[in-house]
Simulated scan of single mutants.
Amino acid sequence: MKLLLWAAIILAVIWILRSKKSSAKADNAAPPRPADDAAEVMLSCAYCKTYFPASEAVFDASHTAFCSAEHRRQHAAH
């Protein structure tokens, strides 16, 4: 009877330690969310309609946004 009691106690301790370890991993696994002010404006390319960050935009003389210089040239050729 004592052997069953010790086995139950050991299994309970192992189970508790594993559950705490799993919850600690789950808390650390979530990536941090960027602050709202860190969000960048997205623009749509006038040629292919793909959205891209405004910092990567290529503009023509009329301030139309393009995702690349190649798309700017192709749009001007039409």
Rank of each mutant, 00 (worst) to 15 (best):
M42D: 09
P32Q: 06
R33P: 09
K49Q: 09
A12M: 07
A29P: 03
L5N: 02
N28W: 11
L4P: 04
V58G: 00
E40H: 00
L43W: 04
A26G: 03
L43R: 02
A35T: 15
A38S: 10
K49F: 12
E70L: 08
D27Q: 09
A77V: 04
L11S: 10
V58P: 02
W6R: 14
W6N: 14
Y47T: 04
R73M: 03
A26I: 05
A12D: 03
E40G: 07
P31F: 04
I16M: 06
A46K: 01
A26T: 03
I9T: 11
K2W: 06
P53G: 13
H63T: 08
C67A: 01
K2P: 00
A46V: 00
C67V: 02
C48Q: 01
F52Y: 10
F59D: 00
F66I: 13
P31K: 03
K25G: 03
V13T: 06
S19M: 12
V41H: 12
L43F: 05
T50V: 10
A38W: 05
R72F: 02
K20Q: 14
M42L: 07
S23F: 01
A46Y: 01
I9L: 14
A29R: 07
W6F: 14
L17R: 10
Y47S: 03
S68T: 00
S62I: 09
A69C: 05
